[in-house]
Write a protein that binds this DNA or RNA. Structure first.
Lengths: 249, 249
DNA sequence: CGTTGGATTGAGTCAACTCAAGGATCGTGG
DNA sequence: CCACGATCCTTGAGTTGACTCAATCCAACG
């Protein structure tokens, strides 16, 4: 586990492959609260930011890196329910001293700002806009969860994988506004893609193989290259209209 | 569609089967905003409260009845992502004039309070606590979505169905605090259970048949009877500890 | 009592899974 | 700079859970 951190970097090394002349969205642009009200914390890839069963008294605001939100079943089956990118808010309590029903694992080295519940509550009093911004973020999370759920429940393996890659690609791209990147590093193994799509890694591998042979996408050792965006959109079963709006965002 | 409304009632007719001497949580207890700031609206079962693609300028706060939140794929595949019960907030915009990516169908006759975005924004300024309460509700929605997703992605058909029935049962029961109900009306067809679990209705039927034969639950024509709660919890693959806490809530 | 949504059951198929054995790639330490 | 160990990826063969297609059957309502 500890070794992985060295290998993976901070998730920004996609720049090596498709140099983005623009700058990624700055950490401060991702902040829910002003810097002086929060403490920042670094975390190495592979570590849990928080784990299932913990009772957190803080909310986490991701400033840089990738985090996987996951749940576990008793026998070890695992589902990744969300990939958090910079700007995300994680660990919102669902009730007073509730145990977290999901965990959060750093996929890359990560920086989060730690916001104690008390600070959050206080801030919402001084700054009414903040709570509504937070609500907006949470509404988007719910909406993304609904999309992801639809994928898992109703799409074929092929569609699911294509949809996930497309989603990650567009969300990643949104971090470098105005850039045209068709190659990026996704800090995921095929097993993690399986955990996110509800498939086994063996089957993910077969699907990826097929998509590669067809010249649609190439994914290999965490490197993603989109070979044919239009066909990817088609396979993912996304309305082209909608997809284009993602690219413009 | 129009006929369904007459047959189904308002979702409270479970009382006929397992008379609850207590009263259901009153509509006003479900309100996000005080009555005078909102307009209430009635809706007949089978109708959409809002549909996919619409650009809503209001948020809906469910006061009574059941609503299914669903998404559709182009070819008609449907996924029910959430069952909203009284107290739920629906239709939160994910960005400025975004089109709704999911729809909301009344499963029973329904009463909602309609809160224009402008009122919501204004209220958050006067009443800072409201926005945080809203954030809490949304955080719970996200968390439920994550659980549901885990079910669909990683559980077997049998586990999924058991889990859903258990969830609906406990959430329903929570509306009559202190009551002991083991029989209730769930305003769902087997097809809708399939849409929620990512299964076909044929397979849902077989699973329900098995659970009935084994004396665990009996579900037939919208009537749910829990025959063996402990075994249901076991089949659902829920930690008994956690399950018990649901019952106490 | 007829009509119409549901629910049920059987037979056959297939997408995704399991089990199992290599092969490739990466980071490390000699 | 090379060799090693640890992940990670790839591929084959056989199995199975859930699906499709296609009839009925039943319950509720008018």
């Amino acid at each position: 586990m500890s070794k992985r951190s060295k290998r993976r970097g901070d998730g920004y090394d996609g720049e090596k492959w498709a140099p983005a002349t623009g700058l990624p969205r700055s950490a401060d642009a991702c902040r829910l609260l002003p810097r002086y009200r929060t403490g920042d914390r670094k975390l190495v890839a592979g570590r849990d930011l928080f784990s299932i069963g913990e009772t957190n008294t803080s909310v986490f605001n991701l400033l840089s890196g990738w985090v996987a939100i996951y749940t576990l079943l008793e026998d070890g089956r695992r589902q990744i329910v969300h990939f958090a990118l910079p700007g995300a808010v994680m660990g919102m309590p669902t009730s007073k001293d509730a145990q977290a029903s999901h965990g959060a694992e750093a996929l890359t080295d990560v920086i989060v700002s730690v916001i104690p519940d008390t600070v959050l509550a206080a801030s919402s009093r001084d700054d009414p806009g903040m709570a509504m911004r937070l609500a907006g973020t949470l509404a988007r999370d719910t909406s993304m969860a609904y999309d992801h759920m639809t994928s898992i429940g109703r799409r074929t393996a092929r569609e699911r994988v294509a949809h996930l890659l497309l989603e990650l690609f567009t969300r990643y791209r949104a971090q470098w506004p105005g850039e045209r990147i068709e190659e990026m590093t996704i800090p995921l193994t095929q097993e993690q893609i399986g955990d996110a799509t509800g498939l086994t890694y063996v089957h993910v591998n077969r699907v990826l193989g097929a998509l590669r042979k067809e010249g649609i996408v190439h994914f290999h050792y965490r490197r993603l290259r989109i070979l044919d965006p239009d066909r990817l959109i088609e396979v993912a079963g996304v309305d082209p209209q909608t997809a284009m709006s993602w690219f413009q965002r």
